[in-house]
Amino acid sequence: MNRKKIYPLYLAAIPALIFIVFFLLPSTAGYYYAFTNWSAARTTDLKFVGLENVISVIQNTKIPKAFVNTLIYAGVKTVLVTVLGFVFAYILNREIKSRTALRTIYFIPAIFSCLVVGLIFSAVFQTRYGTLNNILNVFGIANVQWLGTRGTAVFSICTAEVWRNVGYAIIITLAGLQSVSADYLEAAKLDGASEWQIFRHVTLPLIMPTVNVNILFSLIYGLKMFDLIYVMTGGGPGNDTESFGTLMMNEMSAGRYAQSVAVNLVFTVILVIVALAYQKFSSKWETVE
């Protein structure tokens, strides 16, 4: 029988419709509002103003800062999460007695809401009586205003993000490691390869696709970071820790709706470029084609 009859398209109609209306439409045609004079003061009779908002947003000093911060968040997160996830997964894949318990513990942070993690790390990094400063005080180091200056605040936010996400990377890498056939390892061992050689020439090449998945997801979600920053600093002090995500929110709160959409548009373009560029190196979507 004909495939088209066995698998009729109408079965996919409702999901497709919801996806198109509530994701695709706002994410494409919706960016029309970036080119209007939409604001808190003007919500009806919107006028087309061309590239005015996009240009003003790009010339705005907040954008370069948000751009750099977003790259730092995503970059630091991706490197640390991938590396730590890999190291921990590699160890957890060895014959260790308490492996199940350790695996559970290392994954726990991943189940918390970003809000919760943000609150926890606000407590850890708070200046007066914060956990970290309490510990430093013991060693005679004076209080540091972790969330008060750009450098340390960005560092603190990255720490929280890495804390929450290493568990995911461990689980995914662990699955990759477990799918490496024992036969290969055995054969390499029989040929007299050292543990390092086996790791370098057998295991590593075989789990690179898994590592790529980790990198891609860390990168995408790192670039989209919002909740943690919003909870821990709100983008401040000033605009020092702003990411694209918080900048969109803060522009909206200030009533500059069209500008917020313009930031959103610039952000989408950057994300799609980064992700597509990365896909060239990874085979994640190729398997589908």
């Binding site: 996806f19 994701f23 439409l25 960016y31 509002y33 939409w38 969109m248 959103n264 992700a275």
Partner: peptide, 15 residues
């Protein structure tokens, strides 16, 4: 693309 693109917040509100 739905995994990659960020949430189009205000266009969604408008919709």
């Amino acid at each position: 693309l739905g995994i990659i693109a960020p949430f189009a917040a205000l266009p969604t509100i408008r919709l």
